[in-house]
């Protein structure tokens, strides 16, 4: 077995978070969201529902968007995680999508925003890789980038709720960075 049988309730894991390695002893019950917020002091990722229903906790794991509230940290050993704090890279400059959210005023309270940002970046990569959505026509060629019109953006972002209802501007901000 990769991990020796662990009769106890804790294991050691190594995660790369925003480019930095962290080796931690985690309780098996620990979900990634709580680990980020409570142990690594990365409080950008938000807890809206804690049950996979709102998307506020969305982060990128090995480049894919996932709900960090439903991921057990112990199962992520060796993963590369990007949170909203890491989107700008090393510099102080915000990511172009963060800039677009500011320019478009794509939030009110801002609670859902970190999840919207990570989700949108994951979404752009999925569309570029040719992943269809519920509204993609059946005749769209497989494996070719899917053009993102507004209905595609809305459908693909439906896993991120915004209680302030900033949806129209979130869609506009995303449109601004579509290559």
């Amino acid at each position: 077995m990769t991990s020796a049988p662990q009769p106890g309730h804790h294991s050691e894991v190594t995660l790369r978070v925003n480019g930095k390695p962290h080796t931690l002893r985690v309780d098996h019950r620990r979900v990634l969201l709580d680990l980020l917020r409570e142990e690594l002091d990365l409080t950008g990722s938000k807890k809206g529902c804690d049950h996979g229903q709102c998307g506020a906790c969305t982060v990128l794991v090995d480049g894919r968007r996932l709900n960090s509230c439903l991921l057990l940290a112990v199962a992520l050993d060796g993963s590369e995680i990007t949170t909203v704090e890491g989107l700008g890279g090393d510099g102080d400059e915000p990511h172009p999508l963060q800039r677009a959210f500011l320019d478009r005023d794509a939030f009110q309270c801002g609670y859902c925003t970190p999840g919207q940002l990570c989700s949108a970046l994951g979404m752009l990569a999925e569309a570029a890789a040719g992943h269809p959505s519920h509204v993609t026509g059946p005749t769209a060629p497989s494996g070719r980038p899917v053009p993102l019109d507004r209905s595609e953006i809305r459908e693909r972002m439906s896993g991120n709720l915004c209680r302030c209802g900033a949806y129209p501007r979130i869609v506009e901000a995303i449109e601004d960075v579509i290559p």
């Binding site: 996979g52 894919r64 996932l66 994951g122 269809p132 439906s158 896993g159």
Partner: peptide, 19 residues
Amino acid sequence: YPALSQALLAGASAQLRNA
């Protein structure tokens, strides 16, 4: 099997389907 692809895409959210 278009019904299968359509059924999957009609379920949950993109984040959940990725997991």
